[in-house]
Write a protein that binds this DNA or RNA. Structure first.
Lengths: 211, 211
DNA sequence: GACGTGAGAATGAACGTTCATTATGATGCT
DNA sequence: AGCATCATAATGAACGTTCATTCTCACGTC
């Protein structure tokens, strides 16, 4: 029994150490980006020796992977928590509140970096894509459930809002004076309008205005 | 006279060389990103020796700067060309067509990279911001001129569309199968609706639904 | 004394940049 | 035309540094 406890303690100690390193990595990456952050920077920030980091992560890239993974897991956990505490619409609003109205610049910078990294690192791309898929499934499902208008297309609505959300993140990352609160409000307005069928339908991609 | 011609020729030769290097840099950066591209990679792609690049650019960073600058200049030139050839609304539609309906993944990847770089490189940040400002001025001005509804707020409309545009770029960069044409169509629909006052007004940022 | 944990020096490859040297080709002189 | 001169263009090996990773050794705990 004490053996099992010991094992559990070791597990948790290791996990804690990993979390600690990931926290340090987050600070470093926000400040200097992934590629300009050296293992020595990371070690200093984490308050340990460079060599020791390798006891918890296989490589520098594994740290980034770990960060992307944690990001995704946290998102899922947050969704789960919000859904447990209330209705689905409430969860949706809280997610918007949390991820957009209260988005810090650090969050935004990190996410843009992750996207940039995902464009050529297959591992990161897979993690990002998985997160995107999960979000899309969750949202379209909720949209379908909450739609009050018969012509509300949950998939199209998600496509619209998804771009809006990504754009807000970029804008927040680019300007330290950008206020995400109005953007979050617009996002919500757009969502409500879409659910209630008050958004204009989109015609064919190309061609002129077919009156 | 022949002296002047010679000077002009030298100028143009240098400029051509710079353009050539920037083209190569574009390829390299799209493939591997700025930080993973070595000067030797760049030299190979440009078909010249590493040392020679330094005759045209002060440093590796200057190449990125040059790329950001060229990007901005091209955008301005395109706007100027479209405006010369037709009405302002036509120019706007053509810009959307060009930058979004026909956006290649390479374009998108490069732009996301530039944004990521702008979050910590002040030089790049300044260039990106300048481009953003120019675009914002241009668009709000046009929106103000084209609005058919009295309650159309050009600045708010731009904020909405700007996020939408940035988000489309990110989505395009993240997925090689993403089709930007429908997104461009949505963008246009959103714009038209905004100009005609058919978009729901946004309430205060925080708080519940004030019915 | 075996083992988990950590520090910090050591390693070696990679990379941006420099520089001595060479090619190119235009210009002026005979 | 033939040749010397010279500026510009280009090369690519070498340099010094940086950095991810590994090695060695020490400290504590069972």
């Amino acid at each position: 029994m004490s053996g099992a406890v010991a094992v559990a303690e070791v597990r948790s100690a290791q996990a804690q150490r990993r979390e600690h390193i990931l926290d340090a990595a987050e600070s470093c990456f926000v400040r200097n980006g992934f590629h300009r952050t050296t293992m020595q920077d990371l070690a200093r920030e984490a308050g340990m020796s460079p060599g020791n980091i390798y006891r918890y992560f296989e490589s520098k890239e594994a740290v980034v992977r770990g960060l992307a993974e944690r990001d995704r897991e946290r998102g899922m956990a947050l969704v789960a928590e919000f859904e447990r505490a209330g209705d689905r619409r409430g969860a949706l609003l809280r997610i918007i509140e949390h991820y957009f109205a209260h988005m810090t610049r650090e969050d935004a910078v990190l996410r843009v970096d992750l996207w940039s990294e995902a464009t050529r690192n297959p591992d990161i791309a897979a993690l990002v894509e998985q997160g995107e898929d999960e979000a899309r499934c969750w949202m379209t499902e909720i949209f379908a459930a909450l739609a009050t208008a018969p012509d509300c297309d949950p998939v199209a609505l998600h496509a619209l809002l998804d771009a809006q959300m990504k754009g807000i993140v970029v804008a927040r990352a680019l300007s330290s004076t950008y206020d995400p609160a109005p953007a979050a409000a617009r996002l919500r307005t757009l969502m409500d309008a879409g659910l209630e069928g008050r958004l204009p339908a989109t015609a064919r991609p190309l061609g002129e205005t077919a009156s």
